[in-house]
């Protein structure tokens, strides 16, 4: 397939990127391109210009400082998946990053590009919500930080302004918890039919607190607060996870996505299964 024509500008800094965007209304930012280029090829996106932010230095890499795990927006998924810092402080994120697409896609696709695109079937949004990540953003009007739960607004819709780009995501480091991501991948696209991230803080054999976020079957990730409450204080057993997971139906809301492969009804029925599986995997790590 062959994209339609567009102009191309390469940003040298985040400020430069904002300036270029203001000069070229309707342009799109290009990072790794793994969300955008497929749309260009199918001519489902026909922007007049692309602003390549892929070469901006300092936007890539994983660091831990001041109690925060920081992942630059241009960090490829493969690097996130392989990072021992991510595995230590946000294991669910490593799980999810390692299941995006396939190895070649993970080498090229970036964290920032993925979340800015905000595909409901993407893996990272739910994980970032469960981990209470914050999203660093910069634009013409300056820097700001948005909690993940306020970043993903709906299908392909985020809190990003037209001229803003994601600079990084941050997650509290050193937390005494276990986290995991359970995914039901589409057999063709590899996208998440359902993806559930769970974070459990253990208190002996009991759950002190839990955070659960569900993606894939909803337009934007949903925190499963009913499940979280139901599991808190309970024993860390598959039976209690299964019971608590049943509450996810109350958390999902009315808008459930369905398609040829998995209908609304089926996905709704599978949500508790994957919630329980993610809780179980998170608990196994929490106990360690």
């Amino acid at each position: 397939m062959y994209p339609a024509d567009f102009a191309y500008y390469r940003a040298s800094s985040v400020q430069d990127a904002g300036r270029l965007m203001n000069e070229h209304p309707g342009a799109k930012f290009l990072a790794g391109g793994h969300s955008l280029i497929p749309l260009l090829k199918l001519r489902l996106a026909v922007p007049p210009a692309l602003i390549d932010i892929g070469r901006i230095v300092d936007l890539s890499g994983v660091t831990v400082a001041n109690g925060r795990l920081r992942i630059g927006a241009l960090t490829p998924h493969a690097e996130v998946a392989a990072s021992s810092d991510v595995a230590t402080h946000a294991a669910a994120l490593a799980d999810a990053a390692g299941q995006i697409g396939d190895p070649a896609v993970r080498n090229r696709g970036t964290v920032g590009g993925n979340i800015a695109h905000a595909d409901p079937a993407s893996d990272l949004p739910a994980v970032l919500c469960a981990l209470d990540a914050s999203i660093g953003i910069v634009g013409a009007s300056g820097d700001r930080t948005v909690p993940a739960s306020e970043f993903f607004l709906g299908m392909m819709t985020t809190a990003l302004g037209e001229d803003e780009i994601v600079t990084h995501v941050e997650i509290a480091a050193g937390q005494q918890h276990g986290s995991a991501y359970a995914k039901f991948p589409h057999p063709a696209s590899r996208y998440a039919v359902i993806g559930v991230a769970a974070v459990i803080a253990a208190d002996g054999d009991a759950c002190r607190s839990a955070a659960v976020a569900v993606g894939g079957l909803v337009p934007a990730p949903v925190r499963a607060s009913n499940v979280e409450q139901a599991v808190s204080g309970e024993a860390l057993t598959d039976a209690s996870f299964a019971k608590a997971a049943q509450r996810v139906g109350e958390d999902l809301g009315d808008e459930i996505l369905g398609d040829l492969f998995a209908s609304v009804e089926y996905r709704r029925a599978m949500a508790p299964v994957y919630v329980a599986r993610s809780l179980s995997a998170a608990a196994a790590r929490a106990r360690k």
């Binding site: 589409h186 057999p187 063709a188 696209s189 040829l260 492969f261």
Partner: peptide, 10 residues
């Protein structure tokens, strides 16, 4: 409906 390798599972 299964118009690409995104939908047709090989």
């Amino acid at each position: 409906v299964t118009g690409s390798m995104l939908d047709y599972a090989l």
